[in-house]
Nucleic acid binder design. Structure first.
Lengths: 329, 329
DNA sequence: CCTCGATAGTTATACGTATAAGCGCTTGAT
DNA sequence: ATCAAGCGCTTATACGTATAACTATCGAGG
């Protein structure tokens, strides 16, 4: 520990016998800088020897870009699939120089939300498309955000979007239940804010197949599930929104003496590992996503670097639902 | 949209007819600034009208502090309990002006890791204590990190630590299994890097009660679980590290025709909602944590603001394990 | 009238980086 | 011999904020 504070580019410059500007040019591989290979090496050696790490905030201030990929959604409430996807996306983004920041925040929409987000000067932002407006997108762009990506169940007129086709998920589940001879179908719609929209989308899909399918709103608690399970007029086939709700409901049904799948067939979604671990094993809608974390990271990188332009309305990925039949249906 | 870029404190100053310094004094409620209440209002009005949001990077550069609470662990691998706790902690920290950043990153240790972390100039950092050294703590402190909190199974000589007493978790589970008449005990140790240490701690606790308990290393895959479940010399009581591993193992045992709990009793840990949803319901070690998210957020805030000093070796919280007996044991 | 102290601000500066602009030196062409 | 052009660097500056240091005004007290 020779020095007490982390080394700056000025320290590196002094150690290499050059100016601070040269250090910056070399370490950023700036193409319009003319520096001899010999000097480049001296700089790189000095940087390595001192253990130089650029100050993220200074770089952000100077460039107006932060390398932050902001995800202002609360993945805890979104289910295991999204949570895992975000974790993987973060891993893929890091080696490219980005930092994925989760900003669990659900109250704000439109311009007020955009102002809060803009304070972090994120390089990119991935957010539910329904929280965006034309003005908020403009604000973000003006404040240095290079890439705004929506997250939605339909292409967005404002931004490119990661699209989950919720209707086809619901339809896929309902078709299966109908084939199994179930006539009185229902779809669970989560009561949680934010998630409910997806639930409604999936319900719509169910009703494409079974127009009179019942809508059951359900909070994620055991009491709420019990209330549903003890109804006297239970449907005989339920699409439970996702695997977690499916498990919650299935447990309550078993407690109430209702047999799954004999009395009521249950279909989940996300095809979590969980689904094959519980008994009865859970039939689930699996997503064949074309948006692998690596692919999304590369796409974001291309947009940020300007190698590709972000067409509003364009779709990053459609999740193709496919049913994994197990024993709960 | 009058302006195209987000307003700065200079814009607010111009709008309020004062200097930029005054704006800063007012909006930060700086106590040694002498500003009349009338002017304060003018400034606040102007800021509100323009929708001013301070630039996080400029503030960080100036102060050397970022408001970032860095958590360089990969919660996806840590289990549902830690993941939920971090989500809640983030919610609690936000209104206090901090931003919790998860930095899923497992390779680095000691000074190299500290250098990467220091690049973000975090205000506080919560990290596994075994990834810290004296030198890395010094480096973090020197680079402006006010608070370094360890995460460990024992008090740390370097920093205050959130302590999970893994041994007592294992002992709690083992005592229960022994009372149930189980004689050939085993404890699962996850094969995942980082988590394995906690697994070993819990195994130690099991062996305090049953000295010859077997150690079973298990990767989190169905194949690995099947390999264990089809052994001919199965133990009759297994502490499965946590609920997720317990469910994985229980499923494999059921597939192999082994009855739970008749042939093999299973105990999990974390007492996730999951545990009461599966069949048989999972006996689990519940944590009575004194470290509520709100309490931890307040503690961090006090340390950062200097209202409290961080005594190395001090313990933020001990998790008191308590068994929730259900039907898997 | 002058000083003093308080009040209510302002001016100036630094944080660490990226980059535009400039500057001396060499080289090749005329 | 002179000039232009290129090379290899340096100098200077701006990003937006927080804060130390300073200044102008005013009322009171001598």
């Amino acid at each position: 520990m020779t020095s007490n504070r982390p080394p700056t580019s000025v320290d590196v410059a002094r150690a290499a016998g050059v100016s601070q500007a040269t250090v910056s040019y070399v370490l950023n591989d700036n193409p319009n800088a003319r520096v001899s290979e010999e000097t480049r090496q001296r700089v790189r050696d000095a940087a390595a020897r001192l253990g130089y790490v650029p100050d993220a905030s200074a770089r952000t201030l100077r460039t107006g870009r932060s390398g932050i990929v902001l995800v202002p959604l609360s993945p805890a409430r979104t289910g295991g699939l999204v949570r895992d996807l975000l974790d993987d996306l973060g891993e893929e983004l890091r080696p490219r120089g980005y930092t994925l920041v989760q900003y669990g925040e659900r109250h704000l929409k439109g311009v007020p939300a955009a102002k809060v987000w803009a304070g972090l000067r994120p390089t990119a932002i991935i957010v539910e498309a329904d929280r965006l407006t034309r003005a908020s997108v403009d604000l973000l762009r003006a404040s240095g955000t290079r890439t705004v990506i929506g997250f939605s169940d339909a292409p967005s007129p404002l931004v490119p979007a990661v699209v989950m086709d919720h209707e086809s998920v619901g339809a896929c589940a309902a078709r299966h239940l109908a084939e199994r001879g179930r006539r009185r179908l229902a779809a669970i719609v989560p009561r949680e804010e934010g998630v409910d929209l997806m639930g409604v989308g999936r319900l719509r899909g169910v009703r494409q197949v079974a127009p009179d399918a019942e809508r059951i709103d359900l909070a994620f608690t055991e009491e709420a599930a019990r209330a549903v399970a003890t109804r006297h007029d239970l449907p005989d086939g339920i699409f439970a929104y996702n695997d977690e709700y499916a498990l919650l409901l299935m447990s309550a049904l078993q407690d109430a003496g209702v047999r799954v799948p004999e009395d009521v067939a249950i279909v989940g979604a996300d095809d979590l590992l969980l689904a094959s671990l519980v008994r009865p094993r859970l039939t689930s809608v699996h997503f064949d996503t074309t948006a692998t974390p690596a692919g999304m990271a590369a796409y974001i990188d291309e947009l940020v670097r300007g190698d590709r332009t972000a067409e509003p309305g364009s779709v990053i990925s459609i999740y193709g639902p496919r049913l994994i039949v197990r024993s709960s249906s």
